[in-house]
Design a protein around this nucleic acid. Structure first.
Lengths: 325, 325
DNA sequence: TTGAAAGCGCTAACAG
DNA sequence: CTGTTAGCGCTTTCAA
């Protein structure tokens, strides 16, 4: 395929001149520029970006690390990041890890291999200490609180968020409260669990282990929770469900089983997804799209300005009250 | 950062030897190999992939072109492709286009710029003639029928699929049938519309323009359709909805408005997504995940074997009968 | 304004 | 088995 040398020959100039017009440098006489442009047009020349990348040491690619894709939470996040990336002319590499530490490390290694200029960590299982060393190879922005780390972050304050939701439930007269979360060992789960424990203590309610559900991601998972609930002798009257998909599944089953919502069972979802609106589900809007855009722009800033201080930004959230509380 | 030369010096060998151990070539005496490995370990060396890419002319990256990400249809497709890509050690670049021809062209140009080794087109608006020329720069696999083109494809036979669904509706006694699709000018819409027209003629029913809805993607879009339907004096008794999200929205509103499903309104969705199962929605499983995996493996084959014949593969589909028909 | 030349870091003949 | 050498295609001093 055509290269810069051929263009130079065709246009009767040196390769430096070709490079100059390619890069919009000043100081190229108009007629030479035209000659180069003509030659480029004629043989349909395009730069070999690998050569450019080699010499520049950058690629214009960034990675986004996530466990799986087919989930509304990550889709929204990705969409936000992708939108911003598109605007800045960056390419987004999707790195699915299934929470495997080996795969997560591979993503980080890409930074060292100079295949990407930076990475967004949407969710991970690797401990932070194993991630930090990689910041010397390129900026990293995580979508969870990593304060005091060289890894920047944009996150939801799970503690405040959970407490506020619990308080709302209590205000509405619910004391028998349960919750559903994702990974049982995830960073956010630890925080939420603690917030929950403290709230229960505050309102002087015993804690029921069986009211805490893990691995709730999909509509079906939510539906499953309802059936587990009905099998219990002691049931909660309110559920906090992190993820509208799961919350919707729970709500759907509850309604079709004739349970009165919110009187017999109040539900608060998370993420403010379309399904929540249609089902009139009370939910917490945690600005996932904005999380994606912010993550990208923080990353972008750090790609542009080397050694920029790490930054940690908490996102606002709000409770959208609808019919399930 | 460290390069191959320094390793060579440290290990007391030539750069070729270093390259050989890096590439697992035979013919390297064990003690030299060990010396190289030690040096690599010592200064935490990793290859600069841009140099490798330059010389090899490949990147190990492929692109997936799609209009938007945050939609179950594409999420499933992406997940399939990403899964396969992961297995083969390829990286997936997410290229969101919003159906803009400019953006779509940019994705194709990446092939020329040697930023990717091939591309999957999940959905596009660019005419095929403008895509074909790019196959000289790398393989392209589209997720829609492109028979007789240099662009390979893996697709759903929309015609057969629509007819079969329409027939089911008719068999169940529904003659007043409407449908919802995505883009009004999309390739699949043309096919579906024709299948619909012919079916209506077959069963000697007049065609009602107002029963054909476009741009139905989300749950909310589906809910909106129900309200338009109720505002009509002449209403269909069955709807074919391409996309379970939209179908679910329609179904949800219908049920909560007290419409008897399927007697007064039968609904068939598409994609067999989790929401369909939970809502007991009859739907068509069109194997989207498989479409993604197949698209990738077809692409992969063509990256490995240059000038392999284009291939066109139709995927099977099946109707999952539940409670809405 | 322009061109020559020195790399960027690596691979792969080729000749030992 | 191993090293020398010639590039891959491009950018960027430096000198003219």
């Amino acid at each position: 395929m055509a290269n810069i040398k051929q263009i130079a020959k065709m246009a009767g100039v040196s390769i430096s001149t070709v490079s100059r017009v390619l890069n919009d440098h000043p100081y190229v006489r108009e007629e030479k520029r035209q000659a180069v442009l003509d030659a480029i047009e004629q043989i349909q020349y395009t730069r070999n970006m690998n050569a450019v990348n080699l010499i520049k040491g950058t690629t214009g690619n960034i990675a986004i690390m996530l466990p799986f894709i087919n989930h509304a939470y990550f889709s929204q996040l990705i969409e936000g990041a992708a939108n911003e990336a598109l605007k800045s002319g960056f390419h987004l590499m999707l790195c699915q890890t299934n929470y495997s530490e080996v795969e997560e490390t591979k993503v980080l290694e890409m930074l060292k291999l100079r295949q990407i200029d930076g990475t967004i960590i949407a969710s991970k299982s690797l401990p932070l200490e194993q991630i930090e060393p990689y910041t010397q190879y390129g900026p990293i922005v995580a979508c969870e609180n990593t304060s005091d780390s060289s890894v920047s972050s944009v996150y939801l304050d799970h503690d405040r968020c959970f407490r506020k939701a619990l308080q709302l439930l209590t205000d509405k007269g619910h004391n028998r409260i349960g919750f559903c979360v994702g990974r049982s060992d995830g960073n956010s789960t630890v925080i939420r669990r603690r917030a929950y424990m403290e709230h229960m203590e505050l309102i002087r309610q015993p804690v029921q282990e069986q009211w805490m559900f893990h691995d709730c991601y999909t509509i079906e998972d939510g539906a499953g929770v309802f059936h587990k609930l009905t099998a219990m002798s002691e049931r909660p009257t309110a559920m906090l469900v992190t993820g509208d998909q799961a919350a919707a599944g729970l709500l759907m089953e509850a309604r079709s089983a004739g349970v009165r919502v919110p009187e017999e069972l109040a539900i608060i979802g998370f993420d403010n997804q379309p399904i929540a609106k249609v089902m009139q589900l009370t939910t917490i809007d945690n600005h996932l799209f904005e999380m994606g855009t912010t993550a990208f722009s923080m990353l972008h800033d750090r790609i542009a300005v080397v050694n920029k201080e790490p930054e940690h930004r908490a996102l606002a959230f709000e409770i959208i009250e609808r019919d399930t509380v």
